[in-house]
Amino acid sequence: MNTAASFSVNQGGSQKVFVRRVVIRVFLICAWLLLGVYLFITYRAHTILLDNKGIPEKAISPLSRIQIQIDNQKPIELAPNERDKVMVVGRTHRIIVTEAGQTSPLVEKTINLAIGPDIYLLSVPALVAGSEEALTPFVQEIVRPKEEETPPSESTPF
């Protein structure tokens, strides 16, 4: 009787250990995945092309010399019909557009970037005009070499 009782107690104990082990492993896997998702969302870098060209279809003309500041980065100065690029990390960014030599901003706006696209085109005149389509994903056309690339055979130094 005693042996049977201790056997059932042991069985219950090992079951508890098994359940605890499974719970810990599931928790670790979830934490691992969540950390991956967090890093992916928070630290994915995007390139924003800042464009100071006019959009004739919408009767938007280029702005005179302007300064654009994104988050805490160094302000970028753009003359009419000029483009520049800036790299940002994460999804939400604050953009301040100021006319050169002025202190009060023309526009101050927070933008949200979707995770997918690598490059965005930001039309600053459209942003100042309040257009909803100021920020659009920019599709890069890759010009591939005509010759087929193959893996090299040499080894690299340590």
């Binding site: 691992w32 950390l35 991956g36 890093l39 992916f40 928070t42 630290y43 994915r44 870098a45 995007h46 990390v89 690598d118």
Partner: peptide
């Protein structure tokens, strides 16, 4: 490929590489 920058990029690579 996903352009995850800096040390978080290294941690991300580790999260994929370690398993």
């Amino acid at each position: 490929d996903w352009n995850i920058v800096g040390v978080p990029g290294l941690i991300f690579a580790s999260l994929i590489g370690v398993p």
